[in-house]
Design a protein around this nucleic acid. Structure first.
Lengths: 226, 226
DNA sequence: CCCGGTCTTAAGGAGTTCTTGACGTTCCCT
DNA sequence: AGGGAACGTCAAGAACTCCTTAAGACCGGG
Protein backbone atom coordinates (compact mmCIF):
# COMPACT_ATOMS: atom_id res chain seq x y z
CA UNK A 1 0.00 0.00 0.00
CA UNK A 2 0.90 3.65 0.01
CA UNK A 3 4.11 4.93 1.59
CA UNK A 4 3.66 7.65 4.19
CA UNK A 5 6.12 9.57 6.30
CA UNK A 6 5.29 11.32 9.53
CA UNK A 7 7.30 14.35 10.56
CA UNK A 8 6.49 14.97 14.20
CA UNK A 9 8.65 15.71 17.20
CA UNK A 10 6.39 14.40 19.95
CA UNK A 11 7.41 10.78 20.53
CA UNK A 12 4.01 9.71 21.77
CA UNK A 13 2.02 11.08 18.89
CA UNK A 14 4.57 9.87 16.40
CA UNK A 15 4.42 6.34 17.66
CA UNK A 16 0.64 6.36 17.89
CA UNK A 17 0.11 7.62 14.40
CA UNK A 18 2.82 5.48 12.87
CA UNK A 19 1.48 2.33 14.42
CA UNK A 20 -2.09 3.22 13.71
CA UNK A 21 -1.44 3.76 10.03
CA UNK A 22 0.79 0.71 9.84
CA UNK A 23 -2.08 -1.34 11.23
CA UNK A 24 -4.24 -0.14 8.40
CA UNK A 25 -1.71 -1.38 5.93
CA UNK A 26 0.29 1.71 5.15
CA UNK A 27 4.01 1.63 4.74
CA UNK A 28 5.06 4.13 7.39
CA UNK A 29 8.30 5.87 8.27
CA UNK A 30 8.66 8.65 10.75
CA UNK A 31 11.02 11.50 11.38
CA UNK A 32 11.45 13.47 14.59
CA UNK A 33 12.78 16.65 13.08
CA UNK A 34 12.57 18.76 9.97
CA UNK A 35 16.04 17.83 8.84
CA UNK A 36 15.46 14.16 9.30
CA UNK A 37 12.17 14.56 7.49
CA UNK A 38 13.78 16.14 4.47
CA UNK A 39 16.34 13.40 4.24
CA UNK A 40 13.65 10.82 4.49
CA UNK A 41 11.66 12.55 1.81
CA UNK A 42 14.37 12.01 -0.78
CA UNK A 43 15.40 8.57 0.39
CA UNK A 44 11.95 7.06 0.93
CA UNK A 45 10.00 8.96 -1.75
CA UNK A 46 6.65 8.71 0.04
CA UNK A 47 3.29 9.16 -1.60
CA UNK A 48 2.02 11.29 1.27
CA UNK A 49 3.67 13.38 3.98
CA UNK A 50 2.05 14.10 7.33
CA UNK A 51 3.70 17.18 8.71
CA UNK A 52 3.40 18.49 12.25
CA UNK A 53 3.60 22.21 12.74
CA UNK A 54 5.66 23.48 15.62
CA UNK A 55 8.79 21.48 15.03
CA UNK A 56 11.69 22.57 17.17
CA UNK A 57 14.29 23.05 14.48
CA UNK A 58 12.38 24.71 11.68
CA UNK A 59 9.22 26.68 11.10
CA UNK A 60 6.52 24.57 9.44
CA UNK A 61 5.98 26.98 6.60
CA UNK A 62 9.65 27.07 5.87
CA UNK A 63 9.85 23.30 5.81
CA UNK A 64 6.83 23.02 3.58
CA UNK A 65 8.42 25.37 1.08
CA UNK A 66 11.53 23.27 1.07
CA UNK A 67 9.48 20.13 0.55
CA UNK A 68 7.68 21.77 -2.32
CA UNK A 69 10.93 22.79 -3.94
CA UNK A 70 11.95 19.19 -4.35
CA UNK A 71 8.68 17.35 -4.86
CA UNK A 72 4.97 17.56 -5.54
CA UNK A 73 4.17 14.99 -2.89
CA UNK A 74 0.85 15.71 -1.14
CA UNK A 75 1.33 17.12 2.34
CA UNK A 76 -1.21 16.91 5.13
CA UNK A 77 -0.52 19.36 7.92
CA UNK A 78 -1.25 18.48 11.52
CA UNK A 79 -1.74 21.61 13.55
CA UNK A 80 -2.10 22.04 17.27
CA UNK A 81 -5.48 23.41 18.23
CA UNK A 82 -7.58 25.26 15.78
CA UNK A 83 -5.03 27.76 14.63
CA UNK A 84 -6.90 29.20 11.69
CA UNK A 85 -4.17 31.52 10.60
CA UNK A 86 -1.40 29.01 10.36
CA UNK A 87 -3.66 26.57 8.58
CA UNK A 88 -4.55 29.14 5.99
CA UNK A 89 -0.89 30.01 5.61
CA UNK A 90 -0.02 26.38 5.11
CA UNK A 91 -2.65 25.76 2.49
CA UNK A 92 -1.39 28.87 0.85
CA UNK A 93 2.13 27.57 0.65
CA UNK A 94 0.99 24.32 -0.87
CA UNK A 95 -0.36 22.01 1.80
CA UNK A 96 -3.05 19.69 0.46
CA UNK A 97 -5.11 19.22 3.56
CA UNK A 98 -4.91 19.46 7.32
CA UNK A 99 -6.07 17.88 10.54
CA UNK A 100 -6.47 19.60 13.87
CA UNK A 101 -5.00 18.04 16.99
CA UNK A 102 -6.08 16.08 18.74
CA UNK A 103 -7.11 13.93 15.80
CA UNK A 104 -7.97 10.28 15.55
CA UNK A 105 -6.00 7.98 13.35
CA UNK A 106 -9.22 7.25 11.52
CA UNK A 107 -9.63 10.89 10.73
CA UNK A 108 -6.11 11.17 9.47
CA UNK A 109 -6.53 8.11 7.36
CA UNK A 110 -9.64 9.52 5.80
CA UNK A 111 -7.68 12.58 4.73
CA UNK A 112 -4.86 10.49 3.40
CA UNK A 113 -7.21 8.44 1.33
CA UNK A 114 -8.93 11.51 0.00
CA UNK A 115 -5.65 13.06 -0.99
CA UNK A 116 -4.45 9.90 -2.66
CA UNK A 117 -7.67 9.59 -4.53
CA UNK A 118 -7.34 13.13 -5.72
CA UNK A 119 -3.80 12.96 -7.00
CA UNK A 120 -4.31 9.50 -8.41
CA UNK A 121 -7.03 10.88 -10.56
CA UNK A 122 -5.04 13.84 -11.69
CA UNK A 123 -2.31 11.77 -13.23
CA UNK A 124 -2.24 13.56 -16.55
CA UNK A 125 -4.02 11.43 -18.99
CA UNK A 126 -4.88 11.91 -22.60
CA UNK A 127 -7.55 14.49 -23.20
CA UNK A 128 -11.03 13.10 -23.16
CA UNK A 129 -13.12 13.41 -26.29
CA UNK A 130 -16.84 12.95 -26.54
CA UNK A 131 -18.40 14.04 -29.79
CA UNK A 132 -17.22 17.57 -30.46
CA UNK A 133 -16.20 18.00 -26.86
CA UNK A 134 -12.57 17.85 -25.89
CA UNK A 135 -11.46 18.05 -22.30
CA UNK A 136 -7.78 18.46 -21.61
CA UNK A 137 -7.40 17.62 -17.94
CA UNK A 138 -3.73 18.47 -17.79
CA UNK A 139 -4.13 21.91 -19.32
CA UNK A 140 -7.52 22.28 -17.69
CA UNK A 141 -9.03 23.43 -20.94
CA UNK A 142 -12.16 22.39 -22.71
CA UNK A 143 -13.21 23.02 -26.27
CA UNK A 144 -16.44 22.43 -28.14
CA UNK A 145 -16.06 21.91 -31.89
CA UNK A 146 -12.68 23.55 -31.62
CA UNK A 147 -14.01 26.62 -29.88
CA UNK A 148 -12.63 27.15 -26.38
CA UNK A 149 -15.14 27.01 -23.57
CA UNK A 150 -14.77 29.56 -20.79
CA UNK A 151 -15.56 27.45 -17.76
CA UNK A 152 -15.36 28.22 -14.07
CA UNK A 153 -13.44 25.73 -11.90
CA UNK A 154 -16.53 23.92 -10.72
CA UNK A 155 -17.98 23.80 -14.17
CA UNK A 156 -14.80 22.27 -15.48
CA UNK A 157 -14.65 19.64 -12.77
CA UNK A 158 -18.27 18.81 -13.34
CA UNK A 159 -17.81 18.47 -17.07
CA UNK A 160 -14.70 16.40 -16.61
CA UNK A 161 -16.39 14.01 -14.23
CA UNK A 162 -19.27 13.49 -16.61
CA UNK A 163 -16.93 13.12 -19.56
CA UNK A 164 -14.79 10.59 -17.74
CA UNK A 165 -17.89 8.53 -17.35
CA UNK A 166 -19.53 9.38 -20.64
CA UNK A 167 -22.65 7.39 -21.34
CA UNK A 168 -23.08 6.48 -17.72
CA UNK A 169 -25.71 8.04 -15.53
CA UNK A 170 -24.14 9.84 -12.58
CA UNK A 171 -26.27 10.76 -9.60
CA UNK A 172 -26.13 14.21 -8.11
CA UNK A 173 -25.02 12.77 -4.83
CA UNK A 174 -22.10 11.20 -6.55
CA UNK A 175 -21.33 14.46 -8.26
CA UNK A 176 -21.40 16.25 -4.93
CA UNK A 177 -18.99 13.76 -3.46
CA UNK A 178 -16.58 13.99 -6.37
CA UNK A 179 -16.66 17.63 -7.36
CA UNK A 180 -17.56 19.31 -4.07
CA UNK A 181 -15.29 17.39 -1.79
CA UNK A 182 -14.45 20.35 0.42
CA UNK A 183 -15.69 20.58 3.10
CA UNK A 184 -18.20 17.81 2.81
CA UNK A 185 -20.73 18.57 0.17
CA UNK A 186 -23.65 20.87 -0.29
CA UNK A 187 -27.11 20.62 -1.68
CA UNK A 188 -28.21 18.94 -4.85
CA UNK A 189 -29.73 22.21 -5.96
CA UNK A 190 -26.24 23.57 -6.33
CA UNK A 191 -25.47 20.87 -8.83
CA UNK A 192 -28.58 21.82 -10.75
CA UNK A 193 -27.45 25.39 -10.99
CA UNK A 194 -24.01 24.50 -12.26
CA UNK A 195 -25.50 22.10 -14.74
CA UNK A 196 -27.72 24.85 -15.99
CA UNK A 197 -24.74 27.15 -16.51
CA UNK A 198 -22.82 24.40 -18.20
CA UNK A 199 -25.68 23.78 -20.56
CA UNK A 200 -25.82 27.41 -21.45
CA UNK A 201 -22.12 27.44 -22.29
CA UNK A 202 -22.51 24.28 -24.33
CA UNK A 203 -25.23 26.02 -26.27
CA UNK A 204 -28.04 23.77 -25.22
CA UNK A 205 -31.03 23.74 -22.93
CA UNK A 206 -32.50 21.10 -20.70
CA UNK A 207 -35.43 20.81 -23.07
CA UNK A 208 -33.22 20.38 -26.12
CA UNK A 209 -30.19 18.54 -24.83
CA UNK A 210 -27.21 17.64 -26.99
CA UNK A 211 -24.61 16.47 -24.54
CA UNK A 212 -26.15 16.70 -21.09
CA UNK A 213 -29.13 14.47 -20.67
CA UNK A 214 -30.96 14.41 -17.39
CA UNK A 215 -32.34 11.10 -16.34
CA UNK A 216 -35.33 11.96 -14.23
CA UNK A 217 -35.06 10.78 -10.66
CA UNK A 218 -31.59 9.39 -11.15
CA UNK A 219 -29.03 11.87 -12.37
CA UNK A 220 -27.37 13.10 -15.55
CA UNK A 221 -25.28 11.58 -18.25
CA UNK A 222 -23.10 13.04 -20.93
CA UNK A 223 -23.38 11.50 -24.36
CA UNK A 224 -22.24 12.48 -27.82
CA UNK A 225 -25.09 14.01 -29.77
CA UNK A 226 -26.33 11.98 -32.68
CA UNK B 1 -22.19 -13.51 6.32
CA UNK B 2 -22.28 -9.77 5.92
CA UNK B 3 -20.43 -7.52 8.32
CA UNK B 4 -22.53 -4.82 9.94
CA UNK B 5 -21.66 -2.11 12.43
CA UNK B 6 -24.16 -0.38 14.67
CA UNK B 7 -23.47 3.16 15.81
CA UNK B 8 -25.87 3.84 18.65
CA UNK B 9 -25.38 5.41 22.06
CA UNK B 10 -28.21 3.73 23.94
CA UNK B 11 -26.78 0.60 25.51
CA UNK B 12 -30.07 -1.25 25.54
CA UNK B 13 -30.91 -0.73 21.92
CA UNK B 14 -27.36 -1.41 20.87
CA UNK B 15 -27.26 -4.72 22.63
CA UNK B 16 -30.69 -5.69 21.40
CA UNK B 17 -29.95 -4.94 17.78
CA UNK B 18 -26.47 -6.37 17.84
CA UNK B 19 -27.62 -9.63 19.35
CA UNK B 20 -30.66 -9.80 17.16
CA UNK B 21 -28.64 -9.43 14.00
CA UNK B 22 -25.95 -11.76 15.25
CA UNK B 23 -28.63 -14.38 15.78
CA UNK B 24 -29.57 -14.08 12.14
CA UNK B 25 -26.01 -14.80 11.20
CA UNK B 26 -24.59 -11.34 10.67
CA UNK B 27 -21.12 -10.41 11.77
CA UNK B 28 -21.88 -7.50 14.06
CA UNK B 29 -19.76 -4.86 15.77
CA UNK B 30 -21.10 -1.88 17.59
CA UNK B 31 -19.89 1.57 18.53
CA UNK B 32 -21.29 3.84 21.19
CA UNK B 33 -20.16 7.12 19.72
CA UNK B 34 -19.52 8.82 16.43
CA UNK B 35 -15.77 8.78 16.86
CA UNK B 36 -15.68 5.16 17.77
CA UNK B 37 -17.93 4.47 14.82
CA UNK B 38 -15.61 6.18 12.39
CA UNK B 39 -12.64 4.26 13.63
CA UNK B 40 -14.57 1.05 13.40
CA UNK B 41 -15.60 1.92 9.90
CA UNK B 42 -12.05 1.94 8.65
CA UNK B 43 -10.83 -0.94 10.80
CA UNK B 44 -13.75 -3.31 10.34
CA UNK B 45 -14.77 -2.32 6.79
CA UNK B 46 -18.39 -3.32 7.17
CA UNK B 47 -20.74 -3.98 4.31
CA UNK B 48 -23.53 -2.05 5.99
CA UNK B 49 -23.70 0.64 8.66
CA UNK B 50 -26.69 1.19 10.92
CA UNK B 51 -26.49 4.72 12.22
CA UNK B 52 -28.53 6.17 15.04
CA UNK B 53 -29.37 9.84 14.84
CA UNK B 54 -29.02 11.84 18.01
CA UNK B 55 -25.59 10.72 19.05
CA UNK B 56 -24.14 12.73 21.89
CA UNK B 57 -20.82 13.69 20.35
CA UNK B 58 -21.71 14.55 16.77
CA UNK B 59 -24.67 15.51 14.69
CA UNK B 60 -25.89 12.62 12.57
CA UNK B 61 -25.72 14.53 9.34
CA UNK B 62 -22.18 15.57 10.03
CA UNK B 63 -21.18 12.02 10.79
CA UNK B 64 -22.86 10.73 7.70
CA UNK B 65 -20.97 13.22 5.59
CA UNK B 66 -17.73 12.09 7.14
CA UNK B 67 -18.61 8.48 6.50
CA UNK B 68 -19.38 9.31 2.89
CA UNK B 69 -16.07 11.05 2.49
CA UNK B 70 -14.34 7.83 3.44
CA UNK B 71 -16.40 5.16 1.81
CA UNK B 72 -19.45 4.27 -0.21
CA UNK B 73 -20.69 1.76 2.33
CA UNK B 74 -24.50 1.67 2.51
CA UNK B 75 -25.88 3.44 5.57
CA UNK B 76 -29.24 2.79 7.16
CA UNK B 77 -30.33 5.56 9.46
CA UNK B 78 -32.33 4.84 12.59
CA UNK B 79 -34.27 7.89 13.61
CA UNK B 80 -36.24 8.52 16.75
CA UNK B 81 -39.90 9.18 16.04
CA UNK B 82 -41.10 10.10 12.62
CA UNK B 83 -38.89 13.09 12.10
CA UNK B 84 -39.63 13.73 8.45
CA UNK B 85 -37.20 16.57 8.05
CA UNK B 86 -34.17 14.85 9.40
CA UNK B 87 -34.93 11.73 7.41
CA UNK B 88 -35.14 13.72 4.22
CA UNK B 89 -31.93 15.50 5.10
CA UNK B 90 -30.20 12.21 5.73
CA UNK B 91 -31.29 10.68 2.45
CA UNK B 92 -30.10 13.85 0.83
CA UNK B 93 -26.66 13.52 2.31
CA UNK B 94 -26.36 9.96 1.18
CA UNK B 95 -28.19 7.63 3.50
CA UNK B 96 -29.47 4.56 1.69
CA UNK B 97 -32.50 3.80 3.78
CA UNK B 98 -33.97 4.40 7.21
CA UNK B 99 -36.01 2.85 9.95
CA UNK B 100 -38.14 4.69 12.48
CA UNK B 101 -37.81 3.87 16.15
CA UNK B 102 -39.06 1.83 17.71
CA UNK B 103 -38.25 -0.75 15.07
CA UNK B 104 -38.11 -4.50 15.20
CA UNK B 105 -34.96 -6.39 14.42
CA UNK B 106 -36.88 -8.17 11.70
CA UNK B 107 -37.73 -4.87 10.13
CA UNK B 108 -34.15 -3.73 10.25
CA UNK B 109 -32.96 -6.95 8.78
CA UNK B 110 -35.35 -6.59 5.88
CA UNK B 111 -33.83 -3.22 5.12
CA UNK B 112 -30.33 -4.55 5.42
CA UNK B 113 -31.07 -7.35 3.03
CA UNK B 114 -32.70 -5.01 0.56
CA UNK B 115 -29.72 -2.69 0.68
CA UNK B 116 -27.25 -5.51 0.24
CA UNK B 117 -29.19 -6.90 -2.67
CA UNK B 118 -29.20 -3.50 -4.24
CA UNK B 119 -25.51 -2.83 -4.00
CA UNK B 120 -24.72 -6.37 -4.98
CA UNK B 121 -26.48 -5.65 -8.19
CA UNK B 122 -24.50 -2.52 -8.91
CA UNK B 123 -21.64 -4.75 -9.89
CA UNK B 124 -23.67 -6.06 -12.77
CA UNK B 125 -22.49 -3.48 -15.22
CA UNK B 126 -23.07 -5.60 -18.27
CA UNK B 127 -26.30 -4.93 -20.12
CA UNK B 128 -28.97 -7.57 -19.78
CA UNK B 129 -30.48 -9.09 -22.88
CA UNK B 130 -33.68 -11.05 -23.14
CA UNK B 131 -34.96 -11.68 -26.64
CA UNK B 132 -35.05 -8.36 -28.40
CA UNK B 133 -34.89 -6.53 -25.12
CA UNK B 134 -31.67 -4.93 -24.02
CA UNK B 135 -31.31 -3.19 -20.67
CA UNK B 136 -28.23 -1.13 -20.02
CA UNK B 137 -28.15 -0.43 -16.31
CA UNK B 138 -25.21 1.97 -16.37
CA UNK B 139 -26.64 4.21 -19.05
CA UNK B 140 -30.12 3.50 -17.78
CA UNK B 141 -31.33 2.84 -21.26
CA UNK B 142 -33.57 0.12 -22.57
CA UNK B 143 -34.11 -0.82 -26.18
CA UNK B 144 -36.53 -3.18 -27.87
CA UNK B 145 -35.30 -4.56 -31.19
CA UNK B 146 -32.87 -1.66 -31.32
CA UNK B 147 -35.53 0.97 -30.75
CA UNK B 148 -35.06 2.99 -27.57
CA UNK B 149 -37.80 2.70 -24.99
CA UNK B 150 -38.78 5.85 -23.17
CA UNK B 151 -39.29 4.58 -19.66
CA UNK B 152 -40.01 6.37 -16.40
CA UNK B 153 -37.78 5.57 -13.42
CA UNK B 154 -40.14 3.06 -11.89
CA UNK B 155 -40.82 1.44 -15.20
CA UNK B 156 -37.13 1.02 -15.80
CA UNK B 157 -36.48 -0.44 -12.37
CA UNK B 158 -39.40 -2.78 -12.79
CA UNK B 159 -38.25 -3.96 -16.17
CA UNK B 160 -34.71 -4.41 -14.93
CA UNK B 161 -35.81 -6.47 -11.98
CA UNK B 162 -37.86 -8.75 -14.15
CA UNK B 163 -35.11 -9.01 -16.74
CA UNK B 164 -32.52 -9.87 -14.12
CA UNK B 165 -34.71 -12.76 -13.16
CA UNK B 166 -35.97 -13.60 -16.59
CA UNK B 167 -38.04 -16.76 -16.74
CA UNK B 168 -38.71 -16.62 -13.03
CA UNK B 169 -42.05 -15.64 -11.59
CA UNK B 170 -41.74 -12.64 -9.29
CA UNK B 171 -44.50 -11.81 -6.84
CA UNK B 172 -45.88 -8.31 -6.58
CA UNK B 173 -44.92 -8.14 -2.97
CA UNK B 174 -41.38 -8.85 -3.93
CA UNK B 175 -41.57 -6.24 -6.62
CA UNK B 176 -42.82 -3.76 -4.08
CA UNK B 177 -39.93 -4.58 -1.81
CA UNK B 178 -37.33 -4.28 -4.56
CA UNK B 179 -38.54 -1.48 -6.74
CA UNK B 180 -40.60 0.50 -4.27
CA UNK B 181 -38.41 -0.23 -1.27
CA UNK B 182 -41.47 -0.93 0.80
CA UNK B 183 -41.17 -4.38 2.31
CA UNK B 184 -44.47 -3.97 4.08
CA UNK B 185 -46.78 -1.22 2.91
CA UNK B 186 -47.63 -0.32 -0.62
CA UNK B 187 -50.51 -1.35 -2.78
CA UNK B 188 -50.18 -4.11 -5.32
CA UNK B 189 -52.47 -2.15 -7.57
CA UNK B 190 -49.68 0.31 -8.13
CA UNK B 191 -47.56 -2.46 -9.54
CA UNK B 192 -50.39 -3.43 -11.84
CA UNK B 193 -50.60 0.07 -13.20
CA UNK B 194 -46.90 0.24 -13.92
CA UNK B 195 -46.98 -3.16 -15.51
CA UNK B 196 -49.77 -1.98 -17.72
CA UNK B 197 -47.77 1.04 -18.84
CA UNK B 198 -44.76 -1.13 -19.44
CA UNK B 199 -46.78 -3.48 -21.58
CA UNK B 200 -48.07 -0.60 -23.61
CA UNK B 201 -44.53 0.63 -24.26
CA UNK B 202 -43.41 -2.87 -25.15
CA UNK B 203 -46.19 -2.97 -27.67
CA UNK B 204 -48.14 -5.75 -26.08
CA UNK B 205 -51.29 -6.28 -24.05
CA UNK B 206 -52.09 -8.48 -21.13
CA UNK B 207 -54.26 -10.59 -23.41
CA UNK B 208 -51.55 -11.03 -26.01
CA UNK B 209 -48.34 -11.05 -24.03
CA UNK B 210 -44.91 -11.28 -25.63
CA UNK B 211 -42.52 -10.56 -22.80
CA UNK B 212 -44.60 -9.96 -19.71
CA UNK B 213 -46.62 -12.96 -18.67
CA UNK B 214 -48.82 -12.80 -15.64
CA UNK B 215 -49.14 -15.92 -13.59
CA UNK B 216 -52.47 -15.65 -11.93
CA UNK B 217 -52.33 -15.59 -8.17
CA UNK B 218 -48.55 -15.65 -8.13
CA UNK B 219 -46.95 -12.79 -9.98
CA UNK B 220 -45.34 -11.97 -13.31
CA UNK B 221 -42.44 -13.25 -15.30
CA UNK B 222 -40.49 -11.88 -18.19
CA UNK B 223 -39.62 -14.33 -20.94
CA UNK B 224 -38.29 -14.00 -24.45
CA UNK B 225 -41.12 -14.41 -26.96
CA UNK B 226 -40.95 -17.48 -29.12
C1' DC C 1 -11.26 49.04 0.18
C1' DC C 2 -13.77 48.21 -3.74
C1' DC C 3 -14.57 45.20 -7.78
C1' DG C 4 -15.35 41.29 -10.72
C1' DG C 5 -15.85 36.68 -10.91
C1' DT C 6 -17.57 32.63 -8.69
C1' DC C 7 -20.32 29.99 -5.74
C1' DT C 8 -24.34 29.04 -2.78
C1' DT C 9 -28.96 29.43 -1.46
C1' DA C 10 -33.72 30.38 -2.08
C1' DA C 11 -37.90 30.36 -4.65
C1' DG C 12 -41.17 30.04 -8.43
C1' DG C 13 -42.88 27.54 -11.99
C1' DA C 14 -42.98 23.95 -15.34
C1' DG C 15 -42.99 19.41 -16.37
C1' DT C 16 -42.92 14.57 -15.25
C1' DT C 17 -44.12 10.72 -12.59
C1' DC C 18 -46.68 8.26 -9.09
C1' DT C 19 -50.62 6.88 -6.58
C1' DT C 20 -55.27 6.14 -5.88
C1' DG C 21 -59.95 4.74 -6.67
C1' DA C 22 -63.23 3.13 -9.75
C1' DC C 23 -64.89 -0.09 -12.84
C1' DG C 24 -64.83 -3.69 -16.17
C1' DT C 25 -62.70 -8.12 -17.28
C1' DT C 26 -60.60 -12.48 -16.52
C1' DC C 27 -59.58 -16.37 -13.93
C1' DC C 28 -60.20 -19.98 -10.60
C1' DC C 29 -62.84 -22.89 -7.66
C1' DT C 30 -66.88 -25.13 -6.37
C1' DA D 1 -72.53 -21.69 -14.32
C1' DG D 2 -71.90 -18.59 -10.49
C1' DG D 3 -69.38 -16.16 -7.01
C1' DG D 4 -65.43 -14.16 -5.46
C1' DA D 5 -60.88 -12.87 -5.95
C1' DA D 6 -57.28 -11.25 -8.80
C1' DC D 7 -56.09 -8.51 -12.61
C1' DG D 8 -56.09 -4.62 -16.29
C1' DT D 9 -56.97 -0.06 -17.55
C1' DC D 10 -58.33 4.66 -17.16
C1' DA D 11 -58.41 9.19 -15.41
C1' DA D 12 -57.26 12.79 -12.13
C1' DG D 13 -55.04 14.81 -8.65
C1' DA D 14 -51.04 14.61 -5.63
C1' DA D 15 -46.25 14.42 -5.20
C1' DC D 16 -42.04 14.91 -6.78
C1' DT D 17 -38.02 16.35 -9.60
C1' DC D 18 -35.99 19.56 -12.25
C1' DC D 19 -34.75 24.18 -14.50
C1' DT D 20 -33.98 28.80 -14.25
C1' DT D 21 -33.45 33.23 -12.33
C1' DA D 22 -32.10 36.35 -8.91
C1' DA D 23 -29.89 37.89 -4.80
C1' DG D 24 -26.43 37.73 -1.56
C1' DA D 25 -21.90 35.67 0.26
C1' DC D 26 -17.39 34.90 -0.53
C1' DC D 27 -12.72 35.44 -2.33
C1' DG D 28 -8.71 37.20 -4.49
C1' DG D 29 -6.71 40.98 -7.07
C1' DG D 30 -6.21 45.66 -8.19
Amino acid sequence: MAKVIIIEDDVEIRRLVAEGLADKGYDVDSAASAMEGLEMLVSVRPEVVVLDLGLPDLDGGELLRMVRSISDVPVIVATARDDEDSVVAMLDVGADDYVVKPFSVAQLEARIRAVLRRVGREGHRAPIEVGGLRIDTAAREATLDGEPLDLTPKEFDLLRLLAERAGEVVSKREILAEVWREPYGGSERTVDVHLSWLRKKLGETAQRPRYLHTVHGVGVKLVAPR
